[in-house]
């Protein structure tokens, strides 16, 4: 079902004490997609995820998960969704494996699910810790327990809110390998992350939020291709400590003897060479760089709505 919708959000509004956290957000997340929800801190990502999972009650608007309204048909909607929250939790009364079995029980799943729980423990490298309590685990292990808890009922839609925050590289890679596998099995994956490279590599579709409003909703490659700027890395013979204003206006970043310039796509190379020459800079090498998701993200979140 290539056109089926996993999550449908319509005209969602949420405010806290008069301050808007989400303003008229509408978007659809296709079933089976790997979807990123990006935005600077306070953009409303976690509020949106909270509303999808039912932890936050929106002021108005409607959300459906796999066709089920999260308010009116909450049982089916919650069975279809697994959330890995951003905040770590603790549970002092029950060890990990028992905690997972309890969570499965809430979803009406009994002993038949225990083999899957053991598989999750093994796949997430928690088998040796199955009888340990949360408080004795490291932050990375707690994060993996949260992933296991979100997957005990094999939900169609898996939502990960900053799953790799504070996680070392090795664990991050193994975590993504596991999540990619889930995606390959047909699960819809929705994630928020501050690691834009991860989002660019993993996600087919991206939504960008700023101040509670949807700025962009595109396929990842379309979004990057529609970026209004191009980037040129220029190597110079002589790079003065202080650059003339005409060059500073184009500067994206600088290193020892290289500058990365951000140029309007309609700026001719001859015009650029003239600018550098007028500034007294001697060009030895020039290389075009592709815009990254980070470039798009920075432009959008500082300038405004993507057209």
């Amino acid at each position: 079902m290539p056109n089926a919708i996993a999550v449908e959000i319509t005209n969602l509004h949420k405010s806290y004490q008069g301050v808007a956290a989400l303003t008229d957000v509408s978007l659809q997340i296709p079933e089976g997609s790997f979807f990123a929800l990006l935005g600077p801190n306070g953009a409303g990502k976690s509020t949106l995820i909270g509303a999808i999972s039912g932890l936050i009650k929106p002021d108005s608007g409607r959300i459906r998960v796999m066709g089920h309204d999260v308010q009116a048909d909450f049982r089916k909607a919650r069975r279809a969704l697994g959330l890995v929250p951003q905040e770590l939790i603790d549970e002092p009364f029950f060890p990990i494996r028992q905690l997972l079995r309890i969570q499965a029980g809430y979803f009406g799943l009994g002993k038949s699910q225990w083999a899957w729980i053991d598989e999750l423990l093994q796949r997430l490298g928690l088998w040796d810790k199955r009888d340990a309590y949360m408080s004795s685990l490291s932050g990375g292990m707690k994060r993996r327990v949260l992933i296991a808890l979100a997957l005990v009922h094999k939900p169609a839609v898996v939502v990960l809110d900053e799953p790799t925050a504070g996680v070392d590289i090795e664990l991050r890679l193994s975590m993504w390998a596991f999540i990619r596998e889930l995606h390959a099995q047909g699960h819809t994956i929705i994630l928020t992350t501050h690691y834009l490279e991860e989002a660019e590599q993993l996600c087919e579709k991206i939504a960008i939020l700023r101040e509670g409003q949807l700025l962009a909703l595109e396929d990842t490659q379309t979004l990057i291709a529609s970026h209004p700027w191009e980037y040129l890395e220029v190597t110079l013979e002589n790079l003065p400590a202080v650059l003339p204003q005409m060059v500073t206006d184009l500067l994206h970043r600088r290193s020892a003897n290289k500058l990365v310039l951000r140029l309007s796509r309609d700026l001719a190379r001859s015009e650029l060479l003239a600018i550098l020459s007028a500034a007294g800079l001697v060009l030895t090498e020039m290389r075009q760089l592709e815009a990254s998701l980070e470039d798009v993200f920075r432009t959008l979140t500082t300038n405004g709505v993507h057209s």
Binding site: R75, R78, P85, Y106, F107
Partner: peptide
Amino acid sequence: DLLLLSPL
């Protein structure tokens, strides 16, 4: 939250 995410 684990309870609130459940279908109970």
